[in-house]
Design a protein around this nucleic acid. Structure first.
Lengths: 343, 343
DNA sequence: GTGGGCGTTCAAAGCGCTTTGGCTTGCTTC
DNA sequence: GAAGCAAGCCAAAGCGCTTTGAACGCCCAC
């Protein structure tokens, strides 16, 4: 059943039927009722391919997926997607993932725009002066960034959490507990979130006249193994930290393993606070010693990004509003007062 | 630059230009060269929206994403996606994720077909007599299943790993090491893979005159917490197992935690073998005691599914071939001979 | 010399929508 | 009673591609 058939059946022109269904004002309310009713009865659904050829609108939002044998997709992605999908579902909005060479995403973005393949995109894991943001800005494709890209002289829409504030507050708490040697096991320092977190730690330390020596900071991909390695190095070196901040639960698994291997205990020898993106399959309260965390649901962020993208597409949101969410600091058993040096 | 402009510029009809670019035989090779050359020089790319309206082909493969606040997307998904995307990239094939109410995916599949939104789909986490498989079969939408759905009287294309064989072999090895009381911590038993694994364990046991009592089997969502709970129950009950097979690395984290808490050791008190889908961020060799595993890269499976889907779309593959991959059994420190009962 | 066949090209008809511009009709306004 | 206007509807022209059916020129065979 297509528009032509429907309009013939109703003894109306395609124009009128189309307008009636799309809510245009120049159609008699009585007529509209007839049309809408008939459409529903016969299960008419406009053909999206035809509509998109005519309008250029696709009803899809895009995401450029960096791929390559050496490229690992962040496991957080799936959780974000969960929130995004859950929200988008209600709007019958599909998500198109365009795989791209991680080293050349620009080509793919340009293709999406040139072919009008999506109405909007979202960008994740942004870095400072992220080229994707600059590109999208000039291409004029609506977008929203999950995270932030510092260093531009223009504004753009984003949704981020207060990484700096979260790690500042966590650090300050550790200081108040008497810790002076605090280390940071971070994500890769190309990414904005990692930079912000480190900044938060430094700010808190310097607020108390302390510093974060470079050798007390590890910035690597957030795997269990890297967490382990960083913790070993930190704890075996001279002037081992008495507290560690860690950027992910997965890394914390490695930290906990290192601590066990070295015969140390949490929080007796080491206090530990990690960032928790709230996974259903790994919970900080279930660590051998329940883990204190800075917590922010990445799934909720996904839903919010979907909400804002949809608002942008329907003209309800415009401008370049940045939105920063506060982060919970959840105290559990993994932190305690600093051990008294010597005995 | 569209087809019309290009054809005018070449003093040819749109027909000829279109045919030249699409490799039709009835066009002079000399002409074709001219056309292809001009197209490249002017960066002409056919508009996909127009093409899909004309042909019904979309150049996209679909995946129906079950969503809902209570629905957790499997973290394996992202790894599978990684492989799929990496392969699809070379073919400029996009993936469209259609979020659906987890309880009613049928509506979404029907929409995809009615609107010709995708050329093919893949299905994951199948269950016995999975309604999606039956539906797709009748709808006639090309598809491929990652995993298997038993109980149909028709064939369909799938890619699966030999779950039964893997767990059979792992179990047999434990038996050969002298274990008699072997337990299974499995994924949810609605899913085919879990059923096959359990079957593998039972078959190996009965091959040696042993059995798997129902209270030695736990089938739940594969979270760390569920792994922990299952292990606690198993190890604290009477006739505790001396060996456990576990369906996922994440669950194994919980098992290891339970073992630690109970003051037991691996492999002294308990041998442990888990299934490893090969995540970049959590590796079995990095467990406190390196974990023996049944191993199969889910990323490789993603790439293979993409390859087969593309082959189907271009007519290179047809029929309903099932493909079953063997699974590696990798022995590491987590297994040993059964402890001698009593002392 | 005519007819058939082959190689090559083209005009035009879709695909199923949206949207422009115009045409009625009936009513108000002076 | 002419002019003006709004409401409601329509025919037709896109959107940019693919594909059908036909035409054209040329060569070969009989």
């Amino acid at each position: 059943m297509n528009l032509k058939q429907l309009s013939q059946m109703l003894q109306l022109s395609q124009t009128t039927v189309s307008r009636a269904l799309n809510g245009y004002p120049e159609v008699n309310e009585e007529t509209r009722r007839r049309v809408v009713d008939a459409a529903k009865r016969h299960g008419y659904r406009p053909n999206p391919s035809a509509r998109r050829l005519a309008t250029g609108k696709t009803g899809m939002i895009g995401y450029v997926l960096p791929t390559g044998s050496a490229v690992d997709i962040d496991p957080h992605f799936v959780e974000f997607l969960s929130g995004l999908g859950d929200y988008a579902r209600a709007h019958e909005l599909d998500l198109v993932l365009s795989p791209a060479d991680a080293e050349d995403q620009e080509t793919t973005y340009r293709r999406l725009v040139a072919n009008k393949q999506v109405d909007a995109v979202y960008v994740s894991s942004p870095r400072p002066q992220d080229s994707r943001v600059a590109l999208l800005d000039t291409l004029g494709l609506p977008f929203i960034v999950h995270g932030r890209s510092d260093g531009f002289d223009f504004d753009y829409p984003y949704l981020d959490i207060d990484n700096e504030g979260a790690f500042h507050d966590a650090t300050r708490l550790l200081i108040q507990l008497g810790h002076h040697r605090i280390a940071l096991i971070n994500g890769e320092d190309r990414e904005t979130f990692a930079i912000h977190r480190e900044r938060g730690v430094r700010r808190a330390l310097s607020g108390s006249g302390l510093v974060l020596p470079d050798h007390q900071v590890w910035s690597t991909a957030m795997t269990e193994e890297n967490g382990y390695r960083a913790a070993r190095r930190l704890l075996e070196g001279g002037a081992a930290p008495t507290a560690i901040l860690c950027s992910s639960l997965i890394m914390s698994l490695g930290v906990a393993r290192a601590v066990r291997e070295l015969g140390l205990t949490i929080p007796g020898d080491l206090s530990l606070i990690a960032h928790d993106d709230v996974f259903p399959w790994l919970k900080p309260e279930n660590f051998s010693v329940p883990l204190s965390t800075t917590r922010s649901s990445i799934r909720a962020a996904g839903a919010r990004v979907a909400e804002r993208l949809i608002a942008r597409l329907s003209g309800l949101e415009d401008g370049a509003r940045g939105e920063v969410w506060p982060v919970d600091l959840v105290v559990r058993g993994s932190i305690a007062g600093a051990p008294t040096t010597g005995l």
